[in-house]
């Protein structure tokens, strides 16, 4: 089993940006988009995310798995929402009965629970808005694993204000991964040589989980024993007494300031639009109502 980072250098505009500026942009868009239910605003944010995603130049082959998962999740969640919510959608978003297109009533045999699904025009528009919101956030964050260099997480978050020790902990964690992956493979091979078949664990769920112990315990305990040496070595070198320096230094370029400025503007603008102008709630276009004969 090969454990490898999904990140690789792609020579794209996205990867030329300072990682701090990119995190600020991602968080600003996320906190902006979650304020809106109006599909016109959501279309703007979705376009912005899509542009960012396309600039990352990811291939379908490398993102196919995650997209399958995201699309299934979106369909399932919107499906559950449609079936189990009462009067046409979450009451926080939709008020009133709306324009009913279809309704039914089923009783679950044995327990007598009543399921009363109602499909309304408002609910369809809400489902569309919900889908756009979920996809916008997915589009925005899927490139993270593929475009952020794992070796730069520590310095990035240190320069974003995280304490030195926590940032170094992040840095160290990413450096531990290849060693631990090798240890895991060694342990797996050693246990298989003893007749342990991880793919054919028998028994109920509890027994199966318990039988995972021969794999998890040696890897964990070996790592803890080895870590004591690292603690001692770091203590001997007076770790933590003075601020750290970092091998990789980050420097903002003019384009990073532009991105940060745009991100701040976007977030502040979104907050003001919602708070002062009070626009951005669910909007049902007249054309959609006419389409369904209302």
């Amino acid at each position: 089993m090969l454990i490898a980072w999904r990140y690789r250098e792609r020579n794209t505009l996205i990867q030329k940006l300072d990682p701090r500026a990119r995190w600020i942009f991602l968080l600003a868009v996320m906190f902006s988009v979650i304020q809106f239910w109006d599909i016109r605003f959501l279309a703007f944010f979705m376009g912005l995310s899509l542009m960012y995603y396309l600039l990352a130049r990811l291939t379908w082959k490398e993102t196919r798995r995650v997209w399958t998962f995201v699309l299934i999740l979106v369909v399932v969640i919107i499906g559950i929402n449609a079936v189990i919510t009462g009067r046409g959608g979450p009451t926080e978003i939709l008020r009133g009965a709306g324009h009913v297109l279809w309704e039914a009533q089923w009783v679950v045999p044995g327990v007598g629970w009543t399921i009363h699904p109602i499909i309304t025009v408002e609910k369809i528009v809400f489902a569309l808005a919900q889908m756009m919101r979920m996809l916008t956030i997915a589009i925005l964050f899927i490139p993270v694993a593929f475009t952020f260099n794992p070796n730069h997480y520590g310095v990035t978050f240190r320069r974003l204000g995280l304490p030195d020790k926590v940032a170094f902990s992040m840095d160290l964690a990413f450096r531990f991964v290849p060693t631990l992956a090798r240890d895991f493979n060694l342990t797996l091979d050693a246990q298989r040589a003893r007749g342990y078949e991880v793919e054919k664990l028998e028994g109920g769920l509890l027994a199966q989980i318990r039988k995972m112990a021969p794999l998890i315990v040696p890897v964990t305990i070996n790592a803890i024993v080895g870590a004591e040496d690292i603690v001692n070595a770091m203590d001997l070198r007076c770790f933590g007494l003075r601020p750290r320096t970092w091998l990789h230094e980050l420097r903002y370029a003019p384009r990073d300031y532009v991105l940060i400025g745009f991100s701040v503007l976007l977030l502040v603008g979104s907050i003001l639009v919602r708070a002062l102008l009070r626009v951005g709630d669910l909007w049902v276009p007249d054309a959609v109502l006419r389409l369904f004969g209302f």
Partner: peptide
């Protein structure tokens, strides 16, 4: 120092084991 190292170790272990056990297609 001890917390720094064990935080990093715990995070790396959790990440690797999550990924590895997902890849093993456990029953």
């Amino acid at each position: 120092t001890r917390e720094v190292v064990y935080s990093a170790l715990g995070a790396a272990l959790y990440g690797v084991l999550s990924f590895a056990t997902n890849m093993l297609a456990l029953p």
